[in-house]
Amino acid sequence: MPDTTITLDVFRFQPDGGGHARRSTDGPTFKAYRVPYHEHWVVLDALNWIKDELDGTLSYRWSCRMGVCGSCGMMVNGVPKLTCAAFLKDYYPGTIRVEPLTYFAVERDLIVDMDGFLGKLKSVKPWLIRENEKPVDEGEYLQSPNELASFKQYSMCINCLLCYAACPVVGAEEDFIGPAALAIAQRYNLDSRDQGAAERADALSADEGAWGCTFVGECSEVCPKNVDPAGAIQRVKVDNVKDWYRKLLMPWGHR
């Protein structure tokens, strides 16, 4: 081991007792691991080193190691981060506390249950909806660069869920659709090829939809892809209000 090391305080929880010598009734605990310190290492490298060298039972998700797949999100010193993009040098020589994303149920160690999120995502119908699908041989739906630019930012989401772990409304209201799913809904509503805004309206305007948001804004701060879900949600609210007035003033009008 090199002279310099750094300590990771890692959240451990194995509901089945696992290979870890604990019973399910023990509840979660933290375990400290001393890891070699390299300037170019990220927290994920350190976790991989722990798994390879110290404790093979440590469980966590990761894949791309380059901020693309969105699977390595964890709390690093209390802040939601992609661990493949959180450098040890930014925390050295302090101890780094690694926890699963807050406000999610923990499956095991650093792995959270994503099912709730996937259900919410599905509820906003995140795909192109057309009143009439045009036959494939008539070609694609064309779009100008400006039309693309109007929603491109919101389409960059990698479903890493950092924004959910940043949002106190998610913490308080389990059913809140949440930042990413709302931003993605807005992404489709803004897409010139989409005609499904009416079908998404009920989910978006519900209490668990955009109006659940109190605009804390932290989702946009932690988002690694600059999606700005907070901005997207406020725009959903503005559109929602416009729709409401439109229906009030022109009840006969088909939106």
Binding site: P28, E99, P100, Y103, A105, V106, V112, P168, A172
Partner: peptide, 8 residues
């Protein structure tokens, strides 16, 4: 399931 960090 109990969610981590809740209730607030």
């Amino acid at each position: 399931k109990q969610r981590y960090g809740t209730p607030l």
